[in-house]
Amino acid sequence: MLTQFTPLSALLGGAFLGFAALLLLIGNGKIAGISGITSKAINPKHAKSWHWSFVLGLIVGPLLLPLSRFELPQNFDSSWLAIIVGGFLVGLGSVIGSGCTSGHGVCGIGRFSKRSIIATITFMFTAVVVVFLRQHFAISL
């Protein structure tokens, strides 16, 4: 599906993400990495109440925004096979690689962490290659 370039809402939304991550850091001393928080929440050895309250906030947040202006997508282009394979790889890879778009891409780069910069370049490059191959060789999944 085609989408419009929306630089202003992207910057504004990005600022919210950065502010949320900053609040968690200054308030609790924690990094707002969604994969790290979620994977610890479901791990009995590491689960703490703040992991679950963060996840809860993330889930209920969209319900508090005016629906007329901000709505969640209803149709997803991905096939069920792509969803199953992709979901599994996202979960597996983010925990093995110690982070995802939020932990590495925002907080890590924001701290000028070498590991996070390398990780972000690696997953972005990989994802670009995947999309390129699927576009040009009509690989369906």
């Binding site: 969604i34 994969s35 979620t38 993330l58 991905s78 792509a82 969803i83 394979v85 992709g86 979901g87 599994f88 790889l89 996202v90 979960g91 597996l92 890879g93 983010s94 925990v95 093995i96 690689g97 110690s98 995802c100 778009t101 939020s102 590495h104 590991r115 390398i118 990780a119 972000t120 690696t122 997953f123 972005m124 490059f125 990989t126 994802a127 670009v128 290659v129 995947v130 999309v131 699927r134 999944l141």
Partner: peptide
């Protein structure tokens, strides 16, 4: 693990356009 994990994550993210957040 950092590189292998990032590649696996990138594969899943590229296939679906969806990440954990």
């Amino acid at each position: 693990p950092l590189i292998i994990g990032a590649v696996l994550f990138g594969l899943g993210w590229g296939i679906t356009g969806i990440c954990p957040g």
